[in-house]
Design a protein around this nucleic acid. Sequence first.
DNA 1: TTTAGCACTCTACGCGGTAGAGTGCCAATC
DNA 2: GATTGGCACTCTACCGCGTAGAGTGCTAAA
Lengths: 350, 350
Amino acid sequence: MSERSVPPILNERAQHLLKVLVQRFIRDGQPVGSRALSRASGMDLSSATVRNVMADLEEGGFIRAPHTSAGRIPTDKGYRFFVDSLLTVNPLNPSEIDRLKVRLDDEAGTEGLVETASTLLSGVTHLAGVVTLPRRNHSRLRHVEFLPLSDRRVLAILVVNEKEVQNRVIHTDREYSRDQLQAVANYLNAQFSGRDVTTVRETLLEEMAAHRDDMNELMDSVISVASQVFGEQEQCEDYVLAGETNLMTFTELSDVEKLRELFQAFNEKRDILHLLDRCLAADGIQIFIGQESGYRAFDGVSLVTSTYSVEKDVVGVLGVIGPTRMAYDRVIPIVDVTAKLLGHALNTSQ
Amino acid sequence: MSERSVPPILNERAQHLLKVLVQRFIRDGQPVGSRALSRASGMDLSSATVRNVMADLEEGGFIRAPHTSAGRIPTDKGYRFFVDSLLTVNPLNPSEIDRLKVRLDDEAGTEGLVETASTLLSGVTHLAGVVTLPRRNHSRLRHVEFLPLSDRRVLAILVVNEKEVQNRVIHTDREYSRDQLQAVANYLNAQFSGRDVTTVRETLLEEMAAHRDDMNELMDSVISVASQVFGEQEQCEDYVLAGETNLMTFTELSDVEKLRELFQAFNEKRDILHLLDRCLAADGIQIFIGQESGYRAFDGVSLVTSTYSVEKDVVGVLGVIGPTRMAYDRVIPIVDVTAKLLGHALNTSQ
DNA sequence: TTTAGCACTCTACGCGGTAGAGTGCCAATC
DNA sequence: GATTGGCACTCTACCGCGTAGAGTGCTAAA
């Protein structure tokens, strides 16, 4: 066999043709034939030559033919190569950046900000936007308050980070009066106000270990109540989705059964959260193309994400969900910029 | 003209045939022909006679033919008559009721309850469930607390109804110290704890009017701060939807454009809320069939709702959204029972 | 290595014919 | 007068067929 089977890496011509093919397909949504590609490539090659190259690309798994006599469309692998090696992104127009910035900076409060960011992403891209709620590992305790409920239950109200209010019901091993609870609260506020919540938890554990035997009544109560209040908080992982209905307009997703699977995944949240978690781990822009994510519902769907940070700490992920045939060159900078702006807005608002 | 045009009311035979026709169509989803109907009616009528009756029913607007040579299907008006006058509901199996009850009673907290109810409705009916958040006009004030923020803003934390925590940021006309705010809180707690929030609001307004001129500094602060805290609360109207994806499996809704409109309506919430509001006003079971609701997106879709109550006060609406071709005889008792159970669960949980 | 040419394949579309379901009407019947 | 059998008619769904158009793969020549 004198001919090498599949070139280990695509030569420049093949790369360029792949690039043009993907761009065309993203623009028109139609399979691209050899003649159209030879014209569009600007390379002065006959369609026959282009056909040869396309045969190589197909063998390499970058493109495929929906049927014998149609043009070719990119495979997931083709999109991947396109995104990794061929893509040239147009940076966002400064005036567009400003519009986004204004909309985000106007919004007060964490909850509203996240929702606005998601809506903005979906609005600007005409795809679905997704933003995870920020999770701060560094929450400064501001104030704590207790109210007795019936049946040895106590309502604990925590104010952290300036103006975030959390509340939870804890079960105590004995009945506490209003005054006793007030005393515990006073002690905690005096001792720990302004401190990091995780530090508070650790300090309490140490105290408990150190003074196990010789504790006065107050300290006993403090430890008993506070250990529950500051116990491991189940990270309420969640995300805000916007503009899902945009996805219904794409012909490649017009199969109702496919749509149902995708929307089911949105509702169940588990798979999506897992995917977003993977993005959180890897700093910066992340792209999942079609089946790469490993979830069946994501067939034909891509996810472009970026992490966003508050004071250098990565606290969340945001991104865009759309058909694999999306305008990556536009979407990527939009996601990138929105992530930075959201981080900034969160920074100033607290 | 010797023949009357359209009988003002359907005679018994026509009613029975309409009933059987609707039941058949709900079961099979196929247009019902005269022969099939004459067999199914159990009335020993020839198909020709049935044809005559069907012609009358069509003229009366109760049924229509999708095309010349298909059977007939019910119109919205046909479903309406069916639901109002012909329907016999099978009451729910006691064991099924028990299953629902257990699931709801297990769930703690308002938020979780509402979500569970919605999921239950969707799960049992295989349609979409919808539950509005309960809005209580009677909220007993339990405790109030203030924390100063920067820029003359104050974080107010309200505990109402045993363990519901609300918080809001108010803007004051001057800077308050922590102690001043504490004094205001102490006064409010002493004076109004256990009282209805609306009563508190009214009382404050009266005080303000009565002592406009001769107020001491404390009272001035109290009025200034509290009037904002207890000001008209924008009723945060909202609902929890579950199982929307179930709707995607119905062939009559398989048109993607129709689905998109419906889901858009779910997301925008405005129209749905308006519809649910109308249900709230009318106590008990309400049914909107297809275009009756007046919203384009509801073409081919029905909504079955019931109000639910806490201590005799109607506080919310819950229901099921599905194709007009839904099993009303099953759905109606399910909605009815779930509403009662949710009311009961809310009652005991607080 | 590139290219022109050509046979081949597949889809989309329109046409015609048929089977099947169901209707509407009319005249006969109870 | 209500009911019924009969019959012509209509419409859909389906199948087979032929055609136009797009695009391919292969081969032989440049």
